[in-house]
Amino acid sequence: MEFGKTIVLKNQPKIIGHYSIVGPKEGKGNFGEFFDYVMKNDCFGENTFEKAERKMLEAAIMGVVQKAKMTIKNVDVMVAGDLLNQIISSSYAARAFEIPFLGVYGACSTMAESMAVASVLVDGGYCRNVLCCTGSHFSTAERQYRFPLELGNQRPPTSQWTVTGAGSCILSLEGKGPRVTSVTFGKVVDWGVNDVNNMGAAMAPAARNTMLSHFRNTNTSPKDYDLILTGDLGKLGSEILVDLMDEEGVSLGLNYNDCGQMYFKREQNTLCGGSGAGCCATVFNSYIMKKFEKGEYKKVLFLPTGALLSTTSSQQGDTVPGVCHAIVIEN
């Protein structure tokens, strides 16, 4: 097996601010009380869902800057991404703020990808404050990847619900907050799953690869972490990951969980759980960061996964490749 690349950060950038904004359905989910802002409706006062998604990202950027007690002028670079074609939500949000912008795309793993890139920029001393932001919107993702909202079709039992929400954080060497101590850039892994309604199964091998790489490169094992958190493998995908890791002799115990699996309540009818770039972004920048602030977590391994397909690739019968990036946060 080829391993991913781990970078151990010497200066350990701190997460000095975090912010999350979600839609109404997400607000009623399991993490409802932890989010900074819950929108009253999915349109967010805009006339299209794409504009609503963009506004959500803008709100997340504004919010985190305020929470970190700085102004937007202090941000050296913003690293952001989303799920829409040509990552328009992020680019257009960046247009509104006139700050240097790096667009990244890692599908649902974008939060970790942007934080990993930002950590390296800050750790190397090239930037002082780097803002990371990611979001997704159920209605925009649905029309881009699946069907019109009003089409009367049924969702297969393995499908997941794209989270409407955006999360953001600021990394800096100055200030207070949990530290990012190492990052692992993962490989693109494809084990031949071609069911576009079963993202968990398509992405679990990528999570396995990055997780094994990370444990090997840093000489750690699952028991060294208070929490090992994957992004949106969902119920099925995370069960698969546990099995896959078992085969490698690594047992993921009670300290393993998945944002997508935890996101919604049972009666919210999301089948395998939440997904989308906003899924892990909002959980990480609310619940997880608040647990750090309370001192309940000391060391967390955060490894969101992304499915790197497009409608074109799936219509041409190609399989679904996955990618997973890992970051370690310590208090």
Binding site: F147, P148, L149, E150, L151, G152, N153, R155
Partner: peptide, 25 residues
Amino acid sequence: YDQIGKVAGGGSIVPITGFSNSIAS
């Protein structure tokens, strides 16, 4: 119609109304 479809599946796709829904949606 999509709410009906969520429950009924084939029941609201196969009739001519499903054709209408797939043009209107």
